[in-house]
Write a protein that binds this DNA or RNA. Structure first.
Length: 235
DNA sequence: AATTATGACAACCGCTTTTTC
DNA sequence: TGAAAAAGCGGTTGTCATAAT
């Protein structure tokens, strides 16, 4: 039997299904086996790949491990400010279409973005005691969080420019992000008529006093920010 | 120092869509 | 053209590290 260029013994397929499949975290040996096999034979046809490579894993599990962790172009490490802004913008347009969003963040996986959203963004919604899908929270993102991200990205770029002898212009990506944050076809224009935004602009003004430049990598709100927003939401 | 709570991320599950035969 | 298999996707859960008590 030949599957996707791979030759497998049909008996081994049956035997494999009879065997207990491994689950849970992958071992270094399993990772090496998978990487080496894909290096030699390419990816795809995951069920037969798992069998032929001798991995006691489902094809699904192999595919996920490869796509989310072992692929050479997977980018690891903290989500940057630019990436955060892009995620917020794209999510406001497309909702939970993680794979679609991931396509616009090279090296990031849908799983990683989904995890970011759940652990970071939804956490803020929870702190504000509002639903992550509520208009209030979306507008807060749109008119407070995203502009603040843009400010921080621009500030970081400016700082980098002044601190290096080799001046480089602001990145096109940063420009695009700024444009995205104010683009007319984006979420805000769709769901937030200007007449409804008075309160949020007030909120923005109100909170600007709290955005005093405290700088952390991924927390835009400190405890005081959260308190103030809560007061506003509870009005 | 031990225990508990929390956060981050990896992995699994169930369902839908696409591809193959 | 329809059935089966494979792939893809989003939601959920499990595991581990670290912070808090």
């Amino acid at each position: 039997m030949e599957v996707g260029g791979r030759v497998c013994d049909p008996k081994s397929e049956e035997e494999t299904t009879m065997m207990d499949l491994r689950r849970g975290p992958w071992t270094v040996e399993e990772d090496l086996t998978l990487v080496n096999y894909i290096d030699k034979h390419g990816e795809g046809r995951w069920n037969s790949l798992a069998r032929c490579a001798g991995l006691k894993r489902t094809g699904k599990s192999c595919r996920l491990r490869w796509l989310n962790y072992l692929r050479p172009d997977v980018r690891r490490g903290n989500i940057t400010l630019e990436e955060q802004l892009l995620i917020l913008e794209l999510h406001s347009r497309w909702g939970n279409q993680w794979s679609k969003i991931a396509q616009h963040l090279p090296g990031r996986t849908d799983n990683e973005i989904k995890n970011y959203w759940r652990t970071r963004v939804q956490k803020h919604a929870k702190q504000l005691k509002c639903d992550v899908n509520s208009k209030q929270f979306k507008d807060t993102m749109r008119y407070l969080w995203m502009p603040r991200l843009v400010e921080r990205i621009q500030a970081a770029a400016a700082a980098a420019n002044t601190s290096t002898a080799q001046m480089s212009p602001p990145t096109a990506a940063a420009d695009n992000l700024s444009a995205a944050a104010s683009s007319s076809d984006s979420f805000a224009a769709q769901v937030s008529p200007a007449s409804d935004l008075t309160d949020y602009y007030k909120l923005s003004e109100f909170n600007s006093q709290w955005f005093d430049g405290g700088d952390t990598t991924d927390n835009l709100w400190n405890s005081e920010d959260i308190w103030c927003l809560q007061q506003q939401f509870n009005m």
